[in-house]
Structure formats: structure tokens, C-alpha cells
Design a protein around this nucleic acid. Structure first.
Length: 151
DNA sequence: CGTTTGACTACGC
DNA sequence: CGCGTAGCCAAAC
């Protein structure tokens, strides 16, 4: 267990609520989810920057079984499953994601630019006092994308 | 008691 | 692009 947020259960509840919004076939990361939650009272931004993602990880580990929370859709910033490689949990997570259509590359990584979730709608976030997450897609990737001239 | 152990990341080689 | 490390500290051993 690492340093904990002031009110772990309150923080975890926010994480779980957000995770519930991740659609099947898409994934989010510990860091992206942390970026949607404002630093808890008493936690200065610099500390939150270092601990936020870990706290999201703590929340995932504490996910109540049978809650219906799609915990498998949360992976790390490298696009990989964070549970110990080869562990039963990791195998289950990968199987669940593949069942949703997610494809892993030869290095067991998921392409976040392709499967990364863009986050809940601005309204959904605003209603709960949450922040817009960072995007996995390049800033000006609005679909067309400029092609690099080959000559 | 002293050690080990974390569902993390950004950063530097 | 891969690999190691610092930053964190509460629990479980």
C-alpha cells in the first residue's frame, strides 16, 4: 500500500464511477482517470501528480467483486496490463478485453491511439465536478490527418 | 522491529 | 524504443 488519499473510499468511489463509463472495446489508463479527478482537499498538485495514478491502481485492486465495474478496461500508460505478467488475474483481464474486440500486439500491448477512451462527455464530468482528461490522440487528429510528403 | 511489496509514471540513458 | 530509477509510505511478512 502506498500513501493513501485523505479519504480512500471517497476517492475510490469516484474512480469506480468513472470506470463504469468506459465502453466495452475501449480502454483507459490509471493516469488518465486520475487526470479527471481534482486533487483531494489537502493534497497539493505536485503530490497528486505523483500519486494520482497509483491511487487509481489502489482503487482497481479494491474493486468490489460482482460490482459490474469493468475493471479490465483500465491498463497502464504503456498500453499494457499492469497485473503481474503470467498471473491468473492478468490472463483473465486479457481474455475479457479480447472478448470485447481489443487486439494486443506481439508485445502484449494495446494501441492506445486506437482503443484509448476519450473520456465521458463534458456535461457528465461537469455535473460531478470532474475534469476533462487528456487525450491519447494527437491534438489535431480530427480524422483526416495530414500525410507526410514522401518527396 | 527491519524488509519487502506494491493494478504508476515521467524521465534519463 | 527498451530498461532502470526516483518519488511515495502503509501493510504484510
Amino acid at each position: 500500500m502506498t500513501l493513501q488519499p485523505p479519504d480512500p473510499q471517497a476517492f475510490y468511489a469516484l474512480v469506480w464511477e468513472i470506470v463504469r463509463q468506459i465502453p466495452a472495446g475501449r480502454v483507459s489508463t490509471y493516469g488518465q482517470i486520475a487526470s479527471m479527478i481534482p486533487p483531494p482537499q489537502g493534497v497539493e498538485p505536485p503530490l497528486y501528480d505523483r500519486m494520482g495514478a497509483r491511487w487509481v491502481g489502489d482503487a482497481m485492486r479494491a474493486t468490489p467483486e460482482g460490482s459490474g465495474i469493468p475493471w479490465q478496461r483500465v491498463i497502464n500508460s504503456r498500453g499494457q496490463i499492469s497485473l503481474p505478467a503470467g498471473s491468473a488475474g492478468a490472463d483473465v483481464q486479457r481474455a475479457l478485453l479480447e472478448r470485447e474486440g481489443i487486439v494486443f500486439d506481439e508485445q502484449s500491448r494495446v494501441d492506445l491511439r486506437l482503443y484509448g477512451w476519450e473520456g465521458p462527455s463534458a456535461e457528465w464530468l461537469a455535473e460531478r465536478g470532474l475534469l476533462p482528461p487528456f487525450s491519447f490522440r494527437p491534438p489535431e487528429d480530427t480524422g483526416q490527418g495530414m500525410q507526410l510528403s514522401l518527396f
